[in-house]
Amino acid sequence: MTEELTCIRCPIGCALTVTIDGDNVTVTGNSCPRGAEYGAKEVTDPTRIVTSSVRVINGAQPLVSVKTASDIPKDKIFAVMEEIHKCKASAPISIGDVIITDVAHTGVDIVATRMVTAV
């Protein structure tokens, strides 16, 4: 079985051809090892980084932007968003501060991607 994919690991967007032959997955069309890794992963266990923002209490800004500290399974995106929507963070916040631990049982934390000072 072969699948045609566009690599999303970087903005170049290589056109990948992924061939699955039993346990054997081969990727062609990539221009770097990250592409090979993406191609194999996308057909077996697709993951994404999720970015959003969380409302801030006592902050100089109303929101803090956040992301999953690493990839989470693609089918967990909306479960992650649901937790993000329910969450409120308290200022002060620094980049990298953990806002939610183990979001939606993914084992991944939600971390702040900007600084928000307290008022």
């Binding site: 994919l5 566009t6 690599c7 999303i8 690991r9 903005p11 967007g13 994404r48």
Partner: peptide, 8 residues
């Protein structure tokens, strides 16, 4: 736009 953005 970028191809990766169309995908993701």
């Amino acid at each position: 736009g970028l191809k990766r953005n169309i995908v993701q």
